[in-house]
């Protein structure tokens, strides 16, 4: 349970950064941290004590493998999530750079004031 709570705290740190920081880069960082936290949480759910990676080795029987391997489903989905998050980060950074070029600042309150 404590482990889940730690993942939640990591998420909370990211959320804190997104809500409280005025710097666009900090906000992007907060989002990245939140993504990390969610990924970690999913993997934690799929964890089995004294389990092995879901990769079949030569010589192990399938029944033994089923009983000892980690849950592969969250892992498969987390892989896609990680790569998508990279694409999304690239998009966000591109947006931030564009905004910086337009307004000369990363501060979102300034960007709001200089709308148009």
């Amino acid at each position: 349970m404590l482990t889940y709570l730690l993942a939640f705290i990591l998420f909370a740190v990211g959320l804190y950064s997104v809500i409280n920081k005025r710097n666009l880069i900090k906000i992007i960082m907060g989002i990245i941290i939140m993504e990390h936290a969610v990924n970690a949480f999913l993997i934690l759910i799929g964890y089995r004590i004294s389990g092995k990676a879901p990769i079949l080795e030569k010589g192990t029987s399938v029944t033994e493998f089923v009983n000892s391997a980690m849950d592969p489903l969250p892992q498969a989905l987390v892989i896609t999530s990680i790569v998508i998050s990279l694409g999304v980060v690239a998009l966000m950074v591109a947006l931030a750079v564009r905004l910086y070029q337009h307004y000369g600042t990363f501060d979102i309150t300034e960007i709001r004031k200089l709308r148009g």
Binding site: V83, L86, G87, A90, A94, V97, Y100, Q101, G104
Partner: peptide
């Protein structure tokens, strides 16, 4: 696919010189 697209976006970020020019 992943390599190509990530390299493209990195290259655009690297080539994007508008800020330095200002």
């Amino acid at each position: 696919k992943v390599g190509g697209s990530l390299f493209v976006v990195f290259a655009y970020l690297a080539l994007f010189r508008a800020i330095e020019e200002e």
